[in-house]
Design a protein around this nucleic acid. Sequence first.
DNA 1: AATGAATGAGAATTCATTCAT
DNA 2: TATGAATGAATTCTCATTCAT
Lengths: 209, 209, 209, 209
Amino acid sequence: MSSNNANRKVRRAVKPQRSHGKARVETILVAAAEVIGDKGYDRATMAEIAERAKSPIGSLYRFFPNKEILANALLDRYAVLINAAFDAIDHVASDLPVETLADTLLELMVNLQTETKALASVLEANAKWTKRPKFPELFLQRLIKVLRHRAPELSANDAQNVAAVLMHNLKTMRAITFGKGIATGPDVAAELRLMNRLYLLNRLTPNRK
Amino acid sequence: MSSNNANRKVRRAVKPQRSHGKARVETILVAAAEVIGDKGYDRATMAEIAERAKSPIGSLYRFFPNKEILANALLDRYAVLINAAFDAIDHVASDLPVETLADTLLELMVNLQTETKALASVLEANAKWTKRPKFPELFLQRLIKVLRHRAPELSANDAQNVAAVLMHNLKTMRAITFGKGIATGPDVAAELRLMNRLYLLNRLTPNRK
Amino acid sequence: MSSNNANRKVRRAVKPQRSHGKARVETILVAAAEVIGDKGYDRATMAEIAERAKSPIGSLYRFFPNKEILANALLDRYAVLINAAFDAIDHVASDLPVETLADTLLELMVNLQTETKALASVLEANAKWTKRPKFPELFLQRLIKVLRHRAPELSANDAQNVAAVLMHNLKTMRAITFGKGIATGPDVAAELRLMNRLYLLNRLTPNRK
Amino acid sequence: MSSNNANRKVRRAVKPQRSHGKARVETILVAAAEVIGDKGYDRATMAEIAERAKSPIGSLYRFFPNKEILANALLDRYAVLINAAFDAIDHVASDLPVETLADTLLELMVNLQTETKALASVLEANAKWTKRPKFPELFLQRLIKVLRHRAPELSANDAQNVAAVLMHNLKTMRAITFGKGIATGPDVAAELRLMNRLYLLNRLTPNRK
DNA sequence: AATGAATGAGAATTCATTCAT
DNA sequence: TATGAATGAATTCTCATTCAT
């Protein structure tokens, strides 16, 4: 809302030395996720986040020098979870039937969402000003990796494009599962699952089509 | 001056009397679409919208008594275009092959976007406070209508769910076509088109499955 | 940012923690009394009050979250003084000749005015929107108490009505003493004192009438 | 609320030439009295006054070039009524018993109020910035005239001071009769009447005291 | 002359960020 | 070092007044 994005030293989230600090940072991130998830990035105030975290606002600023850095920390935290989830999938990807793989990938974001529920909204809010979209990049790379693992015959280009569509499907899945409005709910999720399966079957199965 | 939330007339966007005014309103709407599309609803300021429209702030408020009403006007304007687009499709829907219908629907939002460029982003911004999600509802209803027209054997429930997935595909198509980040571009759009075709073929063709 | 009238905490004047803050609040209150007393509630701007108090506008809002709360704080502050003044009178009321009591009461508001100069004007300004007229009520109750103390034979009803007239006399006394226009000045005050004495003598002395 | 009181040509309310215009002006004044009486001078908007008068805002400004002039016109209109009321009293003043005269004067403002109910609030609102307090002056002069008529032995000075107190009593009467808050109502009015009688009896009856 | 749309200075209020303690 | 009070730029919205039609 204010300004001063320019001529400011490059700053990052401070990594706390003491274990006490780590817990504090974790609490703040959880609080931030909740408040931002609830109100959206712009309407979430640093004061409310601090209050929800039962942390003095001064401490909050100690660890996260400004709101943007806090939001980015949220993303980083999310990235860790994503990597872990993909790591788990990587191990079994080649043994899974395509349909199962399709379903598994689709559920991935939902499962993450369950853990870090409100995080997602940060993404959209941030998308408007974040300079480096490293987060979607990571996501895409991990999807490409899974695809090439499962279907080595897929060209690099195809893998990239299929992964992109997949990524959008995951986003859609999240919206369908956690969204409040119209076009949500379990029945719609089932439809999406069907579409996703049809698509991956077509693209990952050599002799079809 | 102060509060007086009670006993205040219901406020709507004013329809300009003078012919000059109509152009002015149009200019404001375009400016609002651009600024909101660019910065998002919360970060878009009425002052910037006014400036972009080369309109004094007072005039802006004359036509749109507050920011929310302005955003709703944007939505209404978009709704008109959507209805027109669907009307055009309705006429030819039953004669089209499923694949063509699938592609046509998918392009719909892209075509709209071309005309009312940044409008779409208002939707998400608004989602946070809009009481009645009449806009997505409209979209969904029109999709259902097309589907039932083309595949009368589809149950009401199925039509609703398929339409929901379709709607998400349209959104995705918009993101892919106009998005700036990763996972965008013509190749990805082609993939999405493929998926969308596979899905509709499966759901709208009676004896397959 | 926008509305959110619901689910918002009840807002009150903040009590400053730091010792410096207490002086600041006092300064603001004095400045507010002066500016509001001078210009009236509506024409007094928060910016001018802040400036007069040599306080940044943000600080003003820190202590008094909005204009209405500031005005109420002014009233509360005044109420404390009034109570103290009446307490002092209560102790001697029964021993005073009626004429002296009459004069003493009449001077009360003038004395208060001397200390909290422009406070009074807030009352009228506030009359327009204050929900609970607790302040005049307090005044009236204290007057009733004095009257019944001094003349126990007065019925509750009579005491209430006499007190009401007395209260108006006090207001008049203030206007005469501090007013700028016509019908003010010491000679007029002397006349008012006479009238007030005549009236109380008539109402509080048992066997006259 | 805005400014520009300085360096502006001296302007007055335009006197309409046509009879149609006179009716229009009257309507506007009535509307202004109602709206200002209802909301207070500052919160009353020119637009609402125009609307209530069913007069285009442009017309309103034609007759009353700004808000202050409109308010002054309201006062002038009131003055005419006051003069008429005093004229009526002047004719009978010398024949009336003091008590009756006292009551008659006290009712005067109430009677006026009945006709131009909301006018009163303009006085206070205007008192803050009106340069020439000609209105209270008129009132006072007419009261002095009545007093000297009825009690020629009263010194000029005494007449002035008694009239001043009387004037305040009239104001009080108005507040008691039309006020909404505490210390109002018919019983309080009866008490005020008593006080007023006692006072005038004392001051206007030669051999008492 | 009459009208009411257009204007923009000014008012209240918020909140990210700083810094005295 | 930790805290939370203090700050002021930025934002939304109003309304007296003007002036094109």
